[in-house]
Design a protein around this nucleic acid. Structure first.
Lengths: 244, 244
DNA sequence: CGACTTCTTGAGGAGACTCAAGGGTGGTGG
DNA sequence: CCACCACCCTTGAGTCTCCTCAAGAAGTCG
């Protein structure tokens, strides 16, 4: 179990001390299993909580009155789910499992204690949230100002970067448990057009996508198509509070 | 101590009763004036900082390789600018003034001390960031899954809610210093299509927009057109750390 | 009043959508 | 172990929203 916990994303910015990790585990409830497709938390639910995704992939979606939905983000193991809704009376988005997933729930009170007792950890939580904001900003730019192929390219690049962070040895071939329907709802396209745009990417030799195995064949081309500059995380974090 | 969200925001940037706030204010540099159109901080700049917008409106934009740009957000007085880029090596977005603006710069070190010494204020900063994430998520849903009129409706509603928070007496008529070009870059539309969609909103008696004065004539219709449920901020924030 | 910016409208074109139907693929049970 | 079913992918055809190009009208500021 400790191995699972070690992947929690706080490690992205700074090595996590054992004490920090222990504290995180203490905050969380007992991990619970969810089947593929299961809803973890519904849009509109009261008193939103935070969740730690220990294994599996999940996604977050917002309902559109007309009947459709927008997928906001997919979550990888180690991600923190549900933070945005902490600011709201009711959850802003639905969380559901894309694959079988193991998830631990965290009560807001634990986050309050974290800010009180572990300023460094709290600051890391804050930083991760800022990183997520950048990702959302980039998705807005991608959806708002690039064509279908560009949106898919941008999405693939973000996924690739995130998978690489979780598993630095992943290389250019990795598993993506997303259906074309999901890609459509992530990019704001129709599933038919996603299919056609993927075919183009395939025919142009940019990616190979067979089943759930995605291979990036031409990273430079993907970046060019995405039309948005890749981001690099801060390395100078000397301004963070020292560990206690 | 019962903090409504609104007072927090006002407290944070108008009144200065709290010692914690005094610290943040002390850490801020001397406020600087920017003319309309002036760039506050450019995308790609190293060692990103945070900024306090004391008066005026600004906006944040991301460049698209093809030549266009996406406006991510407009900022109103009292807003914190530049937080997302704190997670990055280089600023993710360009900040520029929509009107003459007064802005104070804050060094990341001050934020570090804030987390160390003022857990309650740090937690509020965290919460504000989560609220911003929800706004971004809603914009993604709006841009990705609604038509031109819906995107404009959603944008107008968000602006209205934010103006109301800053000035609860504003009512349904308020000043919006945005050109149609800005609306286009905010919604991911062309300026021509923005013009036509605004005309439709006008002809349907939903809004009146003359010069910089925007009047909402039919709030219910706007909400229906936007196709995204309005959000309500959390009122139970008892989990926040107590003030020191 | 003149120059510049911003808004408005027209016309034609393209990217993406909807509707619809056929083809793979994998899982399950007889 | 094969057959069937459900789910997912693929492709075609026609349509519509939104885009681009272009030019003139209205507004704004020195």
């Amino acid at each position: 179990m400790v191995d699972t916990w070690a992947t929690v994303r706080l490690t992205a910015f700074a090595a996590l001390q054992d004490a920090d990790l222990a504290e995180l585990q203490n905050m969380a409830g007992k991990p619970k299993k969810f089947a593929r497709g299961a809803v973890i938390r519904e849009e509109g639910d009261l008193s939103p909580k935070m969740y730690l995704l220990l294994s599996g992939w999940t996604a977050s979606s917002i309902a559109i009155a007309g009947g459709g939905r927008q997928l906001i983000k997919v979550h990888l193991p180690g991600d923190l789910l549900g933070l945005p809704s902490l600011a709201l009376k009711q959850a802003s988005d639905t969380l559901f499992a894309l694959t079988p997933a193991l998830i631990a729930r965290v009560d807001p009170a634990a986050i309050g204690r974290l800010f009180q007792n572990s300023p460094r950890l709290a600051a890391l939580l804050f930083l991760i949230s800022q990183e997520e904001r950048v990702r959302l900003m980039d998705r807005i730019a991608s959806i708002g100002r690039t064509n279908a192929v560009g949106r898919l390219a941008g999405l693939i690049l973000q996924l690739h970067a995130r998978v690489l962070r979780n598993n630095p040895d992943a290389g250019e071939e990795f598993e993506v448990p997303l259906l074309q329907d999901h890609l459509a709802d992530l990019t704001g396209l129709s599933k038919v057009h996603v299919n056609r745009s993927l075919r183009q990417l395939r025919l142009d030799g940019v990616v190979r996508w067979k089943g759930r195995s995605l291979t990036i064949l031409d990273l430079a081309a993907l970046n060019q198509l995405a039309e948005i500059a890749p981001r690099e995380l801060a390395h100078d974090l000397s301004w963070l509070p020292g560990s206690k």
